[in-house]
């Protein structure tokens, strides 16, 4: 097994993300996605320990539940609706709490008066995203796989008699029996060559990271979290701006404002850096696991929330590729859904 990877400066969602292992609200209008996410968060703790065994790196999984905070009543109401829909999709297997601002501040007096309410799900958690990427890379190598960097594939074609031939931008050719296309935003260019219809698009998220803090934040939320090393990450914005991962003044200030209205005691904490990173979104935003009908032996795997879903991208995904018995049913994520 060989992983062909691109260049140092490539757009990489895995190098710029927020590290959430998150269920709350996921798949409110697509039951299969709610169930997929549910399965993933259930498997995370087992996944984290086997990853640590293989790579020697602790990704600092903390899955003790997380909040969504609201400073706007309408948004608060709307999100409760989504949670109820998700609850139905999951046949009531997962509960969430809804707290008024008053109840929330009784629990966490440090939360600012502008927060009108919050929701909470006990299965939500987070990891250290950069160490997670590093540990995946280490695990691949330790398991005997090869990662070849600076191997940006420019062309791929099916070879007569079976298998595929890939050529890179520097002119190297690599042959393989089967090929899994999971090149993030780089997938769109190669997808048509393998007979796939899925074209992914970029969505920018901007984040702030602060200086490291010795104390621990008393809670986790989807927009404010503390990395295990101590820095506080603030994020959650969305912008459709194509391939532009700049950080913008307006959003930086907005994120800071959000942070200090949720937790006024953060006002004096310094921001070390802001950045933008590009999400990889399929046309409907849900994952794509699909086999090429045109070119058997070619697979396309792409998703947003790849940290959350990571436990499913191990043996289960391999079984699905191998068509092994007991392989997960990923029918709902076939790209055929885009042709309807």
């Amino acid at each position: 097994m060989t992983v062909l990877d691109g260049e140092d400066g490539d757009y990489r969602a895995s190098q710029g993300n927020f590290g959430l292992v998150w269920l709350q609200g996921k798949g409110a209008d697509y039951a299969p996605y709610a169930n997929l996410s549910y399965k993933a968060v259930q498997q995370w703790s087992h996944f984290a320990s086997s990853l640590q065994e293989i790579s020697g790196l602790d990704v600092a999984l903390d899955q003790s539940g997380g909040f969504e905070f609201f400073t706007d009543d309408a948004e608060f109401d709307e999100f409760q609706g989504l949670l109820n829909a998700q609850h139905r999709h999951l046949d009531g297997r997962v509960d969430h709490d809804v707290l008024s601002g008053h109840e929330l501040r009784k629990l966490h007096p440090e939360i600012g008066p502008k927060v009108v309410g919050a929701t909470f799900c006990g299965l939500d958690g987070h990891v250290n995203p950069l160490r997670f990427l590093h540990s995946l890379q280490t695990a691949v190598t330790n398991l005997g796989g090869k990662i070849l960097s600076e191997m940006t594939v420019s062309d791929v074609e099916a070879v007569l008699g079976g298998g595929f031939s890939m050529s890179t931008i520097t002119g190297t050719t690599i042959n393989a029996e089967r090929v899994v296309l999971c090149a993030g935003l780089g997938s769109s260019k190669l997808a048509p060559q393998l007979g796939f219809k899925t074209i992914v698009r970029a969505q920018r998220g901007e984040l702030l990271i602060t200086e490291k803090i010795g104390d621990r934040l008393p809670f986790l939320s989807s927009t404010i979290r503390q990395v295990d090393e101590g820095g506080i990450q603030i994020g959650g914005t969305k912008a459709d701006v194509g391939l532009d991962n700049s950080e913008t003044l307006e959003v930086m200030c907005g994120l800071a404002k959000h942070a200090v209205s949720v937790l006024p005691m953060l006002a004096d904490v310094r921001v070390i850096r802001a950045w933008g990173a590009l999400r990889v979104l399929s046309p409907d935003g849900y994952p794509v696991y699909t086999q090429s009908a045109e070119k058997p032996g070619a697979y396309l795997v792409t998703c947003h929330s790849g940290v959350t879903l990571a436990p499913l991208h191990t043996k289960g995904l391999v079984d699905w590729i191998e068509n092994a018995s007991g392989a997960p049913d990923l029918e709902a994520f076939d790209e055929a859904r885009f042709s309807i």
Binding site: T210, C253, A256, K257, V260, A267, I272, R273, A274
Partner: peptide, 19 residues
């Protein structure tokens, strides 16, 4: 290597008041 802003640390409160 890419450089992101703020090129020197700025407090969240200071940033927020610019909003």
């Amino acid at each position: 290597p890419k450089v992101r802003t703020p090129i020197k640390p700025i407090s969240l409160g200071e940033l927020a008041s610019l909003a």
